[in-house]
Design a protein around this nucleic acid. Structure first.
Lengths: 364, 364
DNA sequence: TTTAGCACTCAAACACCCTGAGTGCTAAAC
DNA sequence: GTTTAGCACTCAGGGTGTTTGAGTGCTAAA
């Protein structure tokens, strides 16, 4: 089913007016749109047809029309025009991200806050995770008789450490032995392979009676495990109130509680392979709590074939072109930073690369 | 000005009824309270006097009375009875905290969530910070020709690391030299002392042309700085909606935006020295955004003479005895964990140590 | 096929009344 | 002097009725 050109223009006009005003839009409003040259009566007929196609609906008989989820879907897939970021915006994003490259955790939290600010919707971010990360290197630093530091380096160049206090004293040599054996037998293996048998065998071969091997192995397991689970960041939840659809306490609460649970954040939509971005509208969301909200999410590259997510949640009445453009640009920025690139993507270039996302095909 | 015994009983009854029902309480309700044996007319006279003393107020003429901030203050200081935690609760707290001892960040975030859950108010937590933390030890780990790891240990036994990639190659010996000179000249000093002069001088003395000294010194400065600022955690913000005073979107939004800014969290009240806990009621709060809310906050000990905070924010109509008791117990638990104690405080003992807090003097 | 015109619908805003909880005051009782 | 019963009064909240106006669908003419 292909819509007539006029119907398309009307649908687009309805979506865009509604996004802007949050009020149902009537035939008169549309007829005064410069892109449309028909009387209100004609528009009414067209709108009635769009309604029977399931793309528009009326909150009540004597009100204007608002888009349905399906209406938004058509708009997003076929009708919306690309939004171009202003130079100031790209500069602002670049600066905000660059200033915080230091630490991964920090960076994502900053990116989330930035996203929330720029879109005025609550944002969420997930760290990249890959099940097959392994430890590539162990170091044991002798601090004093009863204290040492374990330093673990992972395949994706992340380094973790742990300070260990012992209730007994140790010798430098013990740590050196430990280091030799761990680097030989505990590198390049997944967490499941660090079995109690392996630990026991190692203890015997090193002659460790103090449990040093268990301590180190325990830390290795912990590190691998924590690295396998994604971390979640949610920011800008109070932005929700800026949008009239969340004037209703019940709706706001439902969404906010949903977002406050790290477990559920992990269930949020993610782009399919190949496409960098995904837009999920209203009832398209699996989660009940999101059935009257939309999610826009972009994927970023965190090197080593791992990918993270950054997205926003808001009402279905969302300025999809703007949100998509900003999110896309931020995701690109993150990918750059994680790839170790120093200069951000296409600095100052107004076109911010939405083209790469199939979902964003403008029709003109 | 000392209140008569009867007035005290009436004030307490009003506060407790109001806390429970969230409805203004009238003379009839009070007169049926078993602790009070007077007719409603007498109560009315007494309540009129309590009102002229500024302890009660009427939302409108034909309504019952509700406590003013000052009324709550008197209640908190003189009238409220100690709340005793149930054994289940203490067990639950102990378990939740114990299971997460691993990492400091994690622990506080868990403690915050737990607090929010137990009190049903949004909770905030601050890490301990001390301005005079210094670095006690540097280690440089050679990974390969162009890669090494810096490991820094701080006075409070926290260890940080950073992986450095270089665009040129280095030798093991360079790192050893670096290690010697950093451990000699860059330990035990505050961040301000790491001046560009010191760095330049060190570079000359080591013969470092590649900027390795700057890299390491930069990381040292960054670590000291980040450790000087407290980290903030806020959780359970959506709990706010469970309380009728935040049915009003405006109020909820005001408080939630306030809590979403890390800067302002740092400004929240803190207990005076000597007392472990502080209750700030309504207009007693400096911040405008909190003028119709209350804050209950407890201090925990993080060892090394450093202290952190954990607290909740909610309506002035708050069950202060319960909240105070729970918070106090959680703070004690945190202190224990940070002091390296393995067994939690007074496990299963119903009395949860509020006595130590001056602010919680029951009157019976 | 488009458009002007008209009768119709219905949410939102407003005015109005009623109800009942709670008050303050007075005068009698203790 | 203190307490209490009784009574007139107040006022928010809930319900009902009315008006208004934006927007519709349908019809008939262009």
């Amino acid at each position: 089913m292909e819509l007539s050109d006029r119907k398309k223009r009307i649908l687009r006009a309805v979506v865009e007016h509604y996004v802007e005003t949050a009020e149902p839009v009537g035939s008169k409003t549309i007829s005064s749109d410069p892109e449309i040259n028909s009387s209100s009566a004609t528009i009414r007929n067209e709108m009635a047809e769009l309604e029977s196609l399931g793309l528009l609906e009326q909150p009540h008989t004597s009100a204007g029309r608002i888009p349905t989820s399906m209406g938004y879907r058509i708009y997003v897939n076929e009708l919306m025009k690309q939004h171009r970021l202003s130079v100031e915006e790209t500069v602002r994003i670049n600066n905000a991200l660059k200033s915080k490259v230091q630490q991964l955790d920090n960076l994502l939290s900053v990116a989330g806050k930035l996203t929330a600010q720029l879109t005025s919707y609550p944002a969420y971010a997930l760290t990249a995770a890959s099940a097959d990360t392994v430890i590539t290197r162990y170091d044991f630093i002798f601090v004093d008789q009863s204290t040492f530091i374990i330093v673990i380096m992972l395949g994706n160049n992340i380094v973790k450490n742990k300070l260990v206090h012992l209730p007994f004293s140790i010798e430098r040599e013990q740590l050196m032995k430990l280091s030799a054996v761990f680097n030989a037998s505990f590198t390049g293996i997944p967490e499941e392979s660090i079995t109690t048998e392996l630990i026991a065998a190692t203890e015997r071969s090193v002659g460790d009676k103090d449990g040093l091997v268990s301590i180190a192995a325990g830390f290795a397991i912990e590190t691998l495990m924590s690295h396998r689970t994604r971390e979640t960041f949610v920011s800008g939840t109070s932005k929700l109130f800026e949008h009239p659809e969340y004037r209703d306490i019940g709706r706001a609460q439902k969404l906010l509680s949903y977002l406050s649970d790290a477990e559920t954040i992990l269930q949020l939509p993610a782009p399919e392979k190949e496409s960098g971005m995904k837009i999920t509208i209203g009832a398209e969301n699996l989660a009940d709590e999101l059935s009257d909200s939309s999610v826009v999410v972009a994927r970023y590259d965190a090197g080593d074939d791992m990918q993270g997510l950054i997205g926003v949640v808001g009402p279905t009445r969302m300025d999809y072109p703007k949100v998509a453009a900003r999110l896309s640009y931020i995701a690109k920025g993150l990918s750059w930073l994680f790839s170790g690139g120093s200069s951000p993507p296409e600095l100052g270039d107004g076109d911010s690369g939405e083209k790469t996302h199939k979902i964003l095909q403008g029709d003109e």
